[in-house]
Design a protein around this nucleic acid. Structure first.
Ligand SMILES: [Mn+2]
Ligand SMILES: [Mn+2]
Ligand SMILES: [Mn+2]
Ligand SMILES: [Mn+2]
Lengths: 145, 145
DNA sequence: GCGAAAATGAAGCCTAGGCTACACTTTTGT
DNA sequence: ACAAAAGTGTAGCCTAGGCTTCATTTTCGC
């Protein structure tokens, strides 16, 4: 539309895409930390801030801030100088995120992306895969084994 | 690896994934604005801040800040109370981003994602698709027409 | 041409998410 | 048992990217 052709041809469809992408972005950090904390608990029985920071590739106060946000959102609990643990909601999120991550990697590999690259890209991609798209991926993978 | 089995079994491979994802994220905003400004110039001959803001779904000062960053990075130029234009580098970025966006949508649709959903998800996904993955998508689409 | 409307700029506030520096607590080794 | 080392918390700084509010400029209608 050059300016005001029809009252509402588009112009509102465009913004929605970006708004949704921004919403997904705001969950990305939470999702990655939840999954990683769950990994650490499985491996070590607890998740320590220092190791979370190491694996995320950030300084330890950065990890501390992320944990604070997880707690604020009801996804984690912790006490001073003790390990970090996930709430029920946190564990559920971690499980969902881990499954989605795997599906994304599987689909990438299935269409010819090298495994190494698939692992790298999936870490960013996963957070923008909607439920609908995820189900489409799963269906396609089942149909193309 | 419970703690320190082998000197460097892993623990450094994990962080790289997140570091790469963060790097991609820092380019996402620039990419979307460059593409949109290019769209507007093609449609209207120029890109006005108000319309950029409308299409991005943000307030106009937010768009102004984004344009300031584009200028700082050598991707755009503008003068007070006049339209925004792209530099050669900006036009090149826009073209690359537009092509990648289209490829991502095409691949999603090809594996069974509804077009509407593909358009929504692609707006976030595109920024995390590496060159290697993009080429794999293109090859797969050629092989599965 | 001029006044009203629209667009733009500028200032200032907020949160998220990075960082360093430093203080404090816990763990560890002798 | 106690000193050193490791881990953790806190404070404070930075940038990006949202927002509102208000001043200024341009554009438009008459
Ligand atoms: Mn991730
Ligand atoms: Mn992941
Ligand atoms: Mn985008
Ligand atoms: Mn796009």
């Amino acid at each position: 539309m050059t300016s005001a052709e029809s009252p509402e041809c588009e112009g509102h469809g465009a913004a929605e895409r970006f708004t949704q992408a921004r919403a997904a972005q705001s969950m990305a950090l939470l999702e990655d930390y939840a999954e990683m904390i769950d990994d650490l608990i499985v491996e070590h029985g607890e998740a320590r801030v220092t190791e979370i920071a190491q694996r995320m590739g950030v300084a330890h106060p950065t990890a501390t801030k992320a944990v604070a946000r997880l707690k604020r959102e009801g996804l984690a609990i912790s006490r001073p100088y003790r390990g970090v643990f996930l709430t029920e909601a946190g564990v559920a999120l971690a499980a969902r995120v881990r499954a989605r991550h795997r599906t994304v990697v599987d689909l990438l590999v299935a269409v010819g992306v090298p495994v190494e690259t698939a692992e790298l890209d999936a870490e960013g991609l996963e957070h923008y895969v909607s439920e609908t798209t995820l189900r489409a991926f799963e269906a396609w993978l089942r149909a193309n084994p």
